[in-house]
């Protein structure tokens, strides 16, 4: 491997018609690094994630993996490049069990097309074990019977199983209780320890300070701060989110043009 970062965004901009959702954003993620993406509602966090995930295509700028630029045009493209997104609404089917959900759309079969139930179950157990997800009692229970934290663990494990190199987590702890949040944050830390690049989108600064190595703050579609967690304070981050200096405010005249 070269010194090039795992994932690099260079001057990424995204317009929706006249609205500029992202403007000239630079960002890097290295292997084993957990980068938190913070910002108020409408700051462009989701747009950024969706651009990397291939749901949106960037208007200008480049997305580089290991130093090489790639055009990501669809969710398939990004999945093929080893980028997995764990969405807020999880995208799990409630009536299927844990194994079925982890393999959904990519089921293993034998030569005759018969599902390899046991092979998939073994593989799923292996991944859950590797990530030390111990709270799930049976992988053959429907996902509906799991708690929010357990479902989040399943979604993350699914991403890891499909050999993700970069995992983007969209508000993974938003709807969780204290203990479940604890489990998910531990899981995020383990992802980093296993050499994956992790982007954590969160509103919760407490969570961010607990697991992130670096904190990137967005405001009005622009990067307003990039802080090292060890030296940064919560106040600094809050200030960046709310008052961060932006080069131009869309829709407002009088701001510095760029």
């Amino acid at each position: 491997m070269t010194d090039a970062p795992l994932l690099e965004l260079r001057g990424v901009s995204k317009n929706f018609g006249a609205v500029q959702a992202l403007k000239d954003v630079d960002m890097t993620i290295n292997p084993g690094e957990i980068v938190a993406l913070v910002g108020d509602n409408g700051s462009g966090k989701s747009t950024l994630v969706k651009s990397v995930a291939g749901i949106h295509q960037v208007s200008s700028g480049a997305i580089l993996l290991n130093g090489e630029p790639f055009a990501i045009r669809s969710p398939r493209d990004s999945a093929d490049l080893g980028i997995q997104v764990v969405y807020q609404d999880l995208a799990l089917a409630d009536n299927l069990d844990v194994v079925e959900n982890m393999f959904l759309g990519r089921e293993q079969t034998n030569k005759l097309g018969k599902l390899d139930h046991n092979g998939m179950e073994c593989r799923a157990l292996e991944v859950l074990d590797q990530l030390a997800v111990t709270t799930i009692r049976s992988v053959r229970q429907p996902v509906a019977s799991l708690s929010g934290g357990q479902r989040q663990s399943v979604a993350v494990s699914k991403a890891v199983m499909w050999s993700a190199k970069i995992v983007l987590l969209d508000e993974p702890t938003a709807a969780l209780g204290v203990e479940q949040t604890r489990h998910v944050l531990d899981l995020v830390l383990r992802l980093g320890q296993q050499g994956l690049g992790v982007v954590l989108i969160s509103h919760n600064l407490h969570d961010v300070f607990e697991v992130a190595d670096r904190i990137v703050a967005l405001r009005l579609g622009q990067k307003v701060a990039e802080l090292d967690r060890r030296t940064a304070t919560q106040t600094e981050v809050v200030e960046a989110i709310t008052f961060g200096r932006v080069s131009s405010v869309p829709g407002q005249s009088g701001a510095t043009t760029s």
């Binding site: 969710p75 089917a93 409630d94 009536n95 959900n101 959904l104 990519r106 089921e107 097309g113």
Partner: peptide, 20 residues
């Protein structure tokens, strides 16, 4: 069969099936 799982998944969450 895969088809069988897909049938169930569409009934459970068509959005999950589509994203898969």
């Amino acid at each position: 069969t895969r088809f069988g799982v897909w049938v169930y998944s569409i009934g459970g969450s068509i959005e999950a099936a589509r994203r898969a």
